[in-house]
Amino acid sequence: MRSFLNLQSLMNVVRRVRHGMTLGVRVMAHDTDGRLLLVRHTYVAGWHFPGGGVDIGETAEAAARRELQEEANVDVAGDLALAGLFFNPRVGGRDHVALFRAGQILAGPRPERNLEIVAADFFAYDALPEDVSPATRRRLDEWRNGLPPAGTW
């Protein structure tokens, strides 16, 4: 019986490695004037919601709070609400993105350019940069128009 349990445990690990998923987070956050926070990365074109990968042993909410702080020097003073979980087929065929909406935020000075972030800034909805990423624009359209979220990022 004991060897069967060890074999079963090994099979579970193999299955997770072969069929596991990756999880990222993004955060839709607004300042007190209602402007939207977006970041521009060094490694991908366009403006995006702040976010990144969930580390081992980290909750998605903790990752969202960490990424906001690291990328934009923004802390969430209020709640984070899960706005949707999306399949991201462009990243290995097994990636998912959890989108959160931030309540009240505390914004510090804009961070200096670094190896990951070129810029982080707040934008009015009628003055968004032209090169907002397609996924970011889809989520904004869904939110602003009261549409149900699509299943893919």
Rank of each mutant, 00 (worst) to 15 (best):
Gly34Trp: 08
Gly24Cys: 03
Ala60Lys: 06
Met28Asp: 01
Gly52Tyr: 06
Arg18Ala: 11
Leu23Cys: 12
Arg26Gln: 07
Thr42Gly: 10
Glu58Leu: 12
Gly53Cys: 14
Met11Ser: 06
Thr22Ser: 14
Ala63Val: 11
Leu38Ile: 00
Ala45Val: 08
Leu36Glu: 00
Glu58Asn: 11
Val25Gly: 02
Thr32Cys: 06
Val13Ser: 06
Gly24Thr: 05
Ala60Ser: 14
Ile56Val: 15
Arg15Ile: 03
Gly51Ala: 05
Glu61Cys: 07
Phe49His: 01
Gly34Pro: 01
Glu58Tyr: 12
Asp33Gln: 13
Ala29Met: 05
Ala29Tyr: 01
Ala62His: 10
Val25Trp: 03
Leu37Tyr: 00
Arg35Asn: 08
Val27Tyr: 00
Ala29Leu: 01
Val39Asn: 04
Ile56Ala: 15
Gly24Glu: 04
Phe49Asp: 03
Asp31Glu: 05
His48Arg: 08
Leu23Asn: 07
Ala60Trp: 04
Thr42Asp: 14
Glu58Ala: 13
Gly20Ile: 12
Val27Cys: 04
Gly52Asn: 12
Ile56Leu: 14
Gly20Lys: 12
Ile56Gly: 10
Arg35Phe: 04
Gly51Val: 02
Asp31Asn: 14
Asp31Ile: 04
Thr59Val: 10
Glu61Leu: 07
Leu23Pro: 04
Thr42Phe: 11
Asp31Phe: 02
Leu36Arg: 01
Ala60Cys: 12
Arg26Asp: 03
Ser9Arg: 10
Trp47Pro: 02
Asp33Gly: 08
Ser9Thr: 04
Met21Asn: 14
Arg15Cys: 10
Leu36Phe: 03
Val17His: 11
Ala63Glu: 08
Val17Gln: 10
Val25His: 00
Val17Trp: 09
Tyr43Leu: 15
Gly51Met: 02
Leu38Gly: 02
His48Gln: 05
His41Cys: 10
Glu61Ala: 14
Arg35Lys: 10
Ile56Ser: 15
Ala29Arg: 01
Glu61Val: 08
Trp47Leu: 05
Gly34Leu: 01
